[in-house]
């Protein structure tokens, strides 16, 4: 009975203590960017601002419902102040669900309009590029996403499950740029060319690095990290030739949560995240992300945005299309 009473007292004390941590000089941020990359930035913000950051980090979508669902579920009584998305599609979904509010940060000055929500509901920064990871020593190297339909690579290609992550966004982007008919034909041609499905971009990259496949469409940080690990791969920015589609760019996006408990603190965090200094840190980290502010110093092996042919897309349209094509992608992935 004494042990039981002790447990109850400890439980109540713990409850009161953890709840009290939300008071004071704090900012609550939900983060979809990989924790290994985002946490150091948030720690730097804590040090520089003197504020305490309470974070909820995301997992790969194949493992849990994700922080976006948590934000939507908490809409009636928001707990977070800021959401740091690793792609603008999620930020768009939240805008559509009425979770975000308008905030135009002064730090966003210089970021191209393509990577900002026109009304100020979210702002993009530090981007990944969708690239082709290719095994070293490959005789035939792909130069376009259309290589997935090239008979030379039949049965030798892999792609991450298109129901999750940046692959979904990329497919939706192709639908908005090409139109439904051409995009559907592309998907069918991929299937006929015996493309394999992996559980994630990381898995795809590992499969190519292991020599199981010729190439895969992954994110730029997947390429960078495998090369840093000494794996025998290289990265190719697809569709860069004149008249080509251009490379699909996936920026991080940050938004202020509507009716958040600490809006002023949230704005300070957003200003910090959108600053060129943060973009430089993310470029120089293992995240290997491309700054959207012009003139930010980057490592040698990270292409600057202004040197790339970028796929011209409207991320709001991509988000809408992404939800519209989900049944189609589900059917395609299930075949």
């Amino acid at each position: 009975m004494g042990l039981l009473l002790l447990v109850v007292i400890v439980a109540i004390a713990g409850m009161v203590w953890t709840a009290s941590r939300r008071n004071g000089n704090v900012v609550v941020v939900y983060v979809s960017e990989d924790q290994v990359f985002s946490e150091p930035i948030l720690k730097d913000f804590e040090r520089d601002s003197g504020m305490r950051v309470l974070a909820v980090y995301d997992t790969e979508e194949t493992k849990s419902a994700g922080v976006v669902n948590r934000l939507i579920a908490e809409k009636a009584n928001p707990q977070a102040d800021v959401y740091w998305a690793n792609e603008p599609i999620r930020a768009e979904v939240l805008r559509q669900q009425g979770v975000s509010s308008v905030y135009r940060s002064p730090s966003a000055e210089g970021i191209p309009d393509q990577f900002r929500e026109p009304h100020g509901y979210w702002t993009g920064f530090s981007a990944r590029a969708r690239m082709l990871i290719v095994a070293n020593g490959s005789v035939d190297k792909p130069g376009s996403v259309l290589a997935y339909t090239d008979p030379r690579f039949r049965g030798k290609t892999v792609i991450a499950n298109p129901l999750f992550g940046t692959t979904t966004a990329h497919m939706a982007a192709l639908f908005t740029v090409w139109g439904d008919e051409r995009a559907n034909a592309f998907l069918d041609a991929m299937r006929r060319n015996d493309v394999h499905l992996a559980s994630s971009n990381g898995d795809s990259a590992d499969q190519v690095a292991a020599g199981n496949f010729e190439f895969a469409l992954v994110d730029s940080d997947d390429v960078y990290n495998r090369r840093k690990q000494g794996r025998p791969v290289e990265g190719i920015y697809p569709d860069q030739e004149g008249g080509g589609l251009g490379c699909f760019i996936v920026p991080n996006a940050v938004l202020l949560v509507k009716d958040s408990p600490h809006p002023q603190a949230g704005k300070k965090l957003i200003d910090y995240l959108l600053s060129p200094a943060t973009e430089k840190k993310l470029a120089n980290s293992d995240a290997a992300q491309i700054p959207l502010h012009p003139g930010v110093e980057t490592p040698v092996d990270i292409r600057r945005l202004e040197t790339l042919k970028v796929m011209s897309v409207d991320y709001a349209q991509v988000a809408a299309k992404m939800q519209a094509i989900q049944p189609l992608l589900k059917d395609w992935a299930g075949r």
Binding site: E61, T62, S64, A65, G66, V68, N69, I72, V93, Q97, L163, F164, T168, Q323, Q326, K330
Partner: peptide, 8 residues
Amino acid sequence: LTQFSAFY
């Protein structure tokens, strides 16, 4: 999981 992750 898909209903959550892909369709919200």
